[in-house]
Design a protein around this nucleic acid. Structure first.
Length: 208
DNA sequence: AATGGAGTCAACCGCGGGATG
DNA sequence: CCATCCCGCGGTTGACTCCAT
C-alpha cells in the first residue's frame, strides 16, 4: 500500500475462478501469435474477460509449452530442500534452477510434501543439516506430487466445452464483430483438457 | 454405501520494486 | 525527484479428490 495503487482490474467486469478450455485455447493462441508484451492489455486484445494477472498466472503455471509435467523426482525434491535451506522461500529463484517447473508448483510441493517430510525437525534444527537431509531424502518414496497433466484428478471440463465453447465463442465473437483470428475449429477427438495437445494439434510453435 | 477428514493443487490477493514519464 | 504504472513474487484460500471408517 501507500503508493496510491489502483486496482489491477475491475472485479465486476472480469471472470474469476477456473479457466475453461475455450479460454485456455484463446490465451494460448493469442500468445503464440502475438507474444505477451503487455499483460494488462492482453485480455482485452485476446477477447478474454480476465484480468491480466490471471492470464499471466495461467500461462506461466499451466499453459507454457515448455512446462515439464509429472511428478518430482527424488533428486528434484532433494535439490528443492537444499535450495530452500540456502534461499528460504524464494520460490521463483528456486524454480529457476528447475527448467520447466514453476514457482507455484515448487511452492505447492514444498508446502504439501517436503515440509511434512522434514516435519518439525526443521524447527528444531540444531545439528548436522546434511545428515538430516540425507536421512530425509533417502527415506523419501518416489511418490510425491501427483501433478498429473492439467486437471489432474479434477473433473474434466471437456464436456463442458462442447456446450460452452459454442456459446462462449459466439458471445466473444459478438464482442468483437470484426475479425477474430482466435476462433478455431477443434476436432472432437482432441483432448480438450490438454492445452499442449491443442498446441501440438494447431502446430503452434513455442516462442521464448 | 455413505460420510467426514486429509491431502492436493489451481487460482486469487496484496505488496514490493523496477521502469517510465 | 516524485508519482504512477505494471510486472512478478510469495502467502493464502477454496474447490476438488482420495481414503479411511
Amino acid at each position: 500500500m501507500g503508493k496510491g495503487r489502483t486496482p489491477c482490474c475491475d472485479k465486476n467486469k472480469v471472470k474469476r475462478g477456473p479457466w475453461s478450455p475455450a479460454e485456455d485455447l484463446r490465451l494460448i493462441t493469442f500468445i503464440q501469435k502475438n507474444g505477451h508484451d503487455n499483460w494488462r492489455a492482453l485480455p482485452k486484445q485476446a477477447g478474454l474477460l480476465r484480468c491480466g494477472k490471471s492470464c499471466r498466472l495461467r500461462w506461466i503455471n499451466y499453459l507454457r509449452p515448455d512446462l515439464k509435467r509429472g511428478n518430482f523426482t527424488r533428486e528434484e525434491e532433494d535439490s528443492i530442500i537444499r535450495l530452500h535451506e540456502a534461499w528460504g522461500n524464494k520460490w521463483s529463484k528456486i524454480a529457476s534452477q528447475f527448467p520447466g517447473r514453476t514457482d507455484n508448483e515448487i511452492k505447492n510441493v514444498w508446502n504439501t510434501h517436503l515440509k511434512k517430510k522434514l516435519g518439525f525437525k526443521n524447527s528444531e534444527f540444531c545439528g548436522d543439516e546434511s545428515k538430516e537431509l540425507s536421512s530425509i531424502t533417502s527415506s523419501s518414496s518416489s511418490s510425491s506430487s501427483s501433478a498429473s497433466f492439467l486437471s489432474g484428478g479434477k473433473p474434466s471440463v471437456a464436456g463442458e466445452l462442447e456446450h460452452q465453447s459454442a456459446d462462449q465463442e459466439t458471445s466473444m465473437a459478438n464482442n468483437n464483430p470484426h475479425h477474430d483470428p482466435c476462433i478455431l475449429t477443434i476436432p472432437e477427438e482432441l483432448d480438450l483438457d490438454s492445452p499442449m495437445e491443442l498446441i501440438n494439434h494447431l502446430g503452434l510453435i513455442p516462442r521464448t
